[in-house]
Amino acid sequence: MNKFVTHIIRFVVFVLVQALILNHLEFGWGILIMVYPLFIFLLPNDLKITFSLIIAFAMGFAIDLLSDTFGIHASALVVFAYLKPLVFARFAKQDNYENLKEANIYTMGTSWFIYTFGILLFFHHLWFFLFEIANFGEIIYIFQKTVLSLIVSFLFSVGLQIIFVPKPKER
């Protein structure tokens, strides 16, 4: 029950931070910080994929409503949630990764985290900008936006975890 409330509060905070603050920070060069995929990433691994898809859709749509993007945040986040178990399994160090209650930078270890989260975030960003621009004539612009935003979003997500996720005690 306690965990459940934590995730609901996280959901609201992520949506508001993304829609009211981060979507308004515009640095030029097409950089857009998108940090909300971290919420889906931090969902417990034993949660059914069906649920995490629906949660992803709801979260993306909430952000869309607040930033006039009509469904691309939702679409990209559903891609993220769908690929999450696949990418997790591909880069898993141990087979029983589903026993990992909550995946974050500490419980996973740095290198595993960088691979999985980096790749998932890359697909999310690529999908988002592909549909936001929706014009293959501007493919270079799409890649520019994807790569630059990816770097900033990734560092931002790592920073958030370092600040807010409590470090487990050394054994």
């Binding site: 898809l53 992803a56 009509f70 469904g71 939702a74 679409s75 549909f131």
Partner: peptide, 14 residues
Amino acid sequence: LLFVGLQFIALATY
């Protein structure tokens, strides 16, 4: 199928 369905709703709206 759920994935495709959700994608369809989102992209159709967009």
